[in-house]
Design a protein around this nucleic acid. Structure first.
Lengths: 335, 335
DNA sequence: GGAGGCGCAGACAACGTTGTCACCGGCTTG
DNA sequence: CAAGCCGGTGACAACGTTGTCTGCGCCTCC
């Protein structure tokens, strides 16, 4: 069928025009469904398009018209359930607006984040949703000035005024910790990510607030930052168990830490609550402080497309609530 | 309508050239690090680039040079753990080749799949990795002929000869079912996706093969297709429990079905094995037949980039093995 | 001391598309 | 009957980049 063109060369409007015996511009009109084309001519053009397997070159089109109908999404890891939920939500909104989504994983590396963002910018995405890993986003200034939409999700940007959607990390961690305290626990361990990560730091702050509000001391011996692997969690728990005054409960700072802690706990019977809901947490009976990645993504993408639609208001900051879901693992007194 | 953005659009090479007092082409040379530019001139150009916040317009560049350094990925759901693992692997390989990834969810809808694929093609992605939902991919013929790389993953294409990476669904399901049989079970229920989905059909076939090999009859009353939600699983199990000769074990056809079954089981004590490993399956002690989405993605992307590098061999089909991971839920005789 | 080379820089034409404007025949209007 | 108008069409110049070719000094080599 058709293709006598060598590989690599696709038919263009010119080819279609030639085959249909019309001018280039007429093909353009047909493709864009512009009015003012004789129906009979249009039919001939459409036949030629079909015959050649012509597909409009969006790149060339957008070179003229500015918008690319695509957005970029930078998250920590496209494979992580939390972020992939966010991605799904962003995709839904983008789709509703006729946009495609470039997505990339920063892996918590500010350099990689910047590379990704700039690669997206070079492709002239209309907007970006970024879960920032870095602390300085001044480099996005020119893009913002040029009319590109930028929304930060989950964590705030550094040195840049832009829309931001956050989660009430501090309040959630405080509520989770207070929940454990309400069952009589007075020695509560913390396992979570490094406080270099914004959300981890905020949650740790919430944990400390809850302790303070209950008149409990903050004991650094009970805090394991960076304990998000089974091995690290096991080491931390071993160390804490050996203390003169060991913990009776654990609060974990994110989903990975929760799973790591569960694996590491083994036979030990500690009360447990964790930040982040995860798929079969209900089956495991794990009490969690749930955040809603889908809502986070919807909100962020919503803000983005509002900007792209012309919203010129001052940058907004939206903070989404968390929800405590008791499932049993926390609802017992110290042994 | 609105049109051009208020505070000026982005600077181009022309603007940079003007500011640096050189010709357009010289800027191009500096940007592309082509040899033959006086170092002093290059410095002046780079300064101008910095001053203006210039970023090369990749769209225009690729209009000339053909390749877009981006690939498209169509999966069922970017938020699903299995597919997001695949995505992550594809991203890794793409990154190593300097490519970005457009990703989209087909949601098992052939129409949406086609829309996505064509949208990617319109943006002239260099290649595609597709988990097909539809059954006819002849529409990709022109793209393939034009030199675009296409690799199908997880399921085969219809009416198109292209590279394909599959998983040994039949063998895995057969092994899982045989594992249950080896513990003395003779009435084994099947809960899974609709057999309209290729992988589900294959796995059901594997289940039947294992039964036949053990001389056990195939009983349609024990098969629940489409039981991947908790409600559907509960209904199916209620129905089967009420049989004169109820099942003593369950084989589930994918991760969602496994979780649904676990939720639906409640107090009932059936032996259980399932297709697909999932994050905390070890914590739940669930025996699974594991496939490796990361390997699937790596392999598919590897094939794709081999094509893009010039591989002109006949289309390959690669079948990846599965692995039975006993964790206790299956390793007990009938009650 | 003319021919040729080298290092550097610019002019110009693509790439595939869309926006602008001009054209042409036939039809309505005054 | 002239002056318009209108539906349908096409020529041409952008968009921002890169490939090709040419131009200009200046140095080297017989």
């Amino acid at each position: 069928m058709g293709g006598r063109d060598g590989p690599g060369s696709r038919p263009t409007m010119k080819d279609v025009a030639l085959l249909a015996g019309v001018a280039l511009k007429t093909v353009s009109r047909v493709v864009n469904e512009e009015p003012g084309v004789n129906p009979a001519t249009a039919v001939r053009v459409r036949e030629a398009i079909e015959r050649l397997g012509y597909r409009r070159n969006e790149g060339a089109r957008l070179l003229r018209s500015g918008r690319t109908a695509s957005i970029g999404l930078v998250i920590e890891d496209v494979g992580d359930p939390f972020y992939s939920g966010l991605f799904r939500a962003v995709e839904d909104v983008a789709r509703r607006h006729g946009s495609l989504v470039f997505a990339g994983s920063s892996g918590e590396d500010p350099v990689r984040e910047r590379e990704l963002v700039l690669a997206f910018c070079a492709r002239r995405v209309d907007g970006l949703v970024v879960v920032p890993a870095g602390e300085d986003h001044a480099y996005l200034g020119p893009e913002l000035a040029a009319g590109m939409g930028v929304v930060f999700a989950d964590r705030p940007a550094g040195n840049l005024a832009a829309d931001t959607v956050l989660v009430d990390n501090r309040g959630g961690a405080r509520a989770g910790t207070a929940h454990l305290i309400s069952y009589g626990h007075r020695r509560i361990a913390w396992l979570g990510d490094s406080p270099a990560i914004f959300t981890a730091a905020e949650r740790l702050r919430g944990y400390r607030t809850a302790l303070a509000e209950a008149g409990l001391p903050y004991d650094p011996c009970l805090v394991a930052s960076g304990a998000t692997t089974t091995e690290a969690a096991r080491a931390a728990l071993d160390r804490m168990s050996a203390l003169a005054d060991p913990p009776t409960a654990i609060f974990t700072g994110n989903g990975r830490a929760t799973i790591a802690a569960l694996r590491a706990l083994g036979p030990r019977r500690y009360a447990l609550a964790g930040f982040d809901d995860f798929e079969p947490a209900d089956l495991l009976g794990v009490t969690v402080v749930a955040q809603d990645p889908v809502r986070l993504g919807h909100t962020a993408a919503g803000l983005l497309f509002a900007r792209l639609a012309g919203d010129r208001d001052a940058p907004r900051e939206i903070v989404l609530p968390t929800r405590l879901i008791p499932r049993g693992s926390a609802e017992r007194p110290p042994a």
